[in-house]
Design a protein around this nucleic acid. Structure first.
Length: 269
DNA sequence: ATGGCCATCGCGGATGGA
């Protein structure tokens, strides 16, 4: 089973690139972030024509998330139950791989994989109202995931986290020290998610140094590899033995009018 | 360097992103 996450920074602009990428990289589930469109504008038909189903949680202009999949999404949940949020940031569902097809009556929590696709708040600047919202949202996510992991031991949390783990995820650690995505408060919350029983799939494998998932549009950021690794795939401890590979696909960042983020992919046996 | 780029809304320039 292959899963991927990609912040596409407007599905209206990037739909052709997403379809091209899926054609070249068939995956079982693709989590998208920053759709920047409302549900009534979501291109279900275009994905269906490419052989994919889709469930979305859209929002006009900002945010918006979706799960694109080969097999149906079961038990779809939008946002974080228990955390009041007016923004469309999280969509979750259970998926059973085509090869693992089971009768419809079977409990999918035992054979399927629970996928949580999330667009974490940016936070803008430490100390700002948006930063406080980011920390509150992270706490809400953590409290909810603690019980989700009990209900769904086979769980993948993936998306645009807008947080780096440490200096290895940052092209300019000195310049970004205590800046947004790199503060101790954000990293504390990220490690608190890890402490729930989640593992960074990227670091289960040897990776090229300076592997990033986002590069600033300004100042030739991609060409100079001035980036950060802020898009992550975390797998639950129960899934860890099945993780076969994890990589960042920089190819679409070389497109014309690219998203500033690259897709991250994980392969499960 | 109070910046650079990009998307949105909407038609100028502010806001948000990261």
């Amino acid at each position: 089973m292959k899963l991927a996450t990609w912040n596409i920074n407007s599905l209206t602009v990037r739909l052709p690139q997403v379809l091209d990428w899926l054609a070249a990289n068939p995956v079982d589930v693709l989590a998208l972030q920053e759709l920047k469109l409302s549900d009534d504008k979501f291109p279900h038909a275009a994905f269906a024509a490419a052989g994919y189903q889709s469930v979305c949680f859209g929002q006009k202009t900002y945010n918006g998330v979706a799960l694109i999949s080969k097999t149906p999404a079961h038990n779809v949940v939008r946002n974080i139950p228990g955390f009041s949020d007016g923004l469309a940031r999280v969509i979750s569902a259970t998926f059973v791989a085509e090869t693992d097809a089971v009768p419809a009556t079977t409990d999918k929590s035992s054979t399927g994989i629970r996928v949580v696709g999330a667009y974490f708040p940016n936070g803008q600047e430490p100390g700002s109202d948006k930063f406080e919202y980011k920390l509150a949202w992270l706490k809400g996510l953590r409290d909810w995931l603690r019980t989700e992991l009990v209900a769904y031991p086979r769980l993948v949390l993936m998306g645009d986290f807008n947080i780096t783990f440490d200096d290895a995820d940052v092209w300019d650690p000195e310049g970004m020290c205590d800046q947004i995505h790199c503060t101790d408060e954000e990293r504390y919350e990220l490690n608190a998610l890890i402490a729930l029983g989640l593992i960074d799939a990227h670091r289960l494998f040897p990776q090229a140094p300076k592997s990033y998932s986002w590069w600033d549009y300004r100042d030739f950021g991609f060409r100079r590899n001035h980036g950060m690794r802020i898009d992550h795939i975390l797998v639950s401890t129960a899934l860890k033995p099945q993780v076969a590979a994890c990589w960042i696909d920089k190819t679409p960042r070389k497109n014309e009018r690219p998203s500033d983020h690259a897709p991250v992919v994980v392969e499960l046996n």
